[in-house]
Simulated scan of single mutants.
Amino acid sequence: MPNFSTIAAGFASLLGGYLIAVFVVHQAWGDATQPQIATSFNAFALLFVMALAIERIVQPFAPALGPDSATPAAALQAAQAAGNQAQANTERAALSKARNRTAIVTWGLATGLACLLAAGTNITLLHAITDRQGTQVAYWLDLLVTGLVVGAGTKPINDLWTRLQNKPADPA
């Protein structure tokens, strides 16, 4: 279980980005007309692009956003090589804890950045998929939903990117 400071850092990043998006970015560009999504373009493709951009921004800083996971990873490899199952289990737990704490902070940062990007581009998810003639969702709620969806989408994209980078070369 992550400690309170890790959770607080994650939510502080989220809240900071969201508040800046609502009260600074949206105020500066709030009157700008919302871009129209082309009929051949899916709103979810736009969210994917936003999530991918944010993932690429956050990824280089991820090691600095949480506890060091390299030390427990090396200790786990050493314990496995030595055949010490008890030590390997201890190191596996330490590695998992370090990665989970980092994931919480990076999620908060990614979600805060998603709010900033959505406010800056004036593109929000619920506005993009709802009927323009009907009742619209409040902007603050739409921005929060967009930030949460895009911020959460950075984790699967990061996992996919990591797997593609670590894939062994085709011997063909």
Rank of each mutant, 00 (worst) to 15 (best):
N100G: 11
F11A: 08
A93M: 03
V145Q: 02
A172F: 10
D159T: 15
A28N: 03
A51Q: 03
I20Y: 01
D159P: 08
T102Q: 13
L143P: 08
Q34E: 09
A93L: 05
T154S: 05
Q136L: 12
R56F: 05
T106E: 00
A79Y: 03
G151H: 10
P156E: 00
P60Y: 03
A114T: 12
R163S: 05
L126R: 03
A8S: 13
F11G: 13
A78Y: 03
L19G: 10
T121V: 13
D142C: 14
A93D: 05
G120F: 06
G108E: 04
L47T: 15
N100D: 08
F61C: 02
A43I: 11
L52S: 15
D142N: 13
G134M: 13
A38L: 05
I123R: 05
F48A: 11
P60D: 01
A114V: 13
L76K: 09
A53N: 06
R132L: 01
L164R: 08
V145P: 07
Q87R: 14
A88D: 02
D170A: 11
W161N: 09
I7W: 00
A110K: 06
V25Y: 03
L65S: 04
A78I: 08
Q85C: 00
T130M: 00
I54D: 00
Q133D: 12
G151F: 04
Q77T: 13
P60S: 03
V145E: 00
P2Y: 01
T146F: 02
T162Y: 07
A38R: 11
P63H: 10
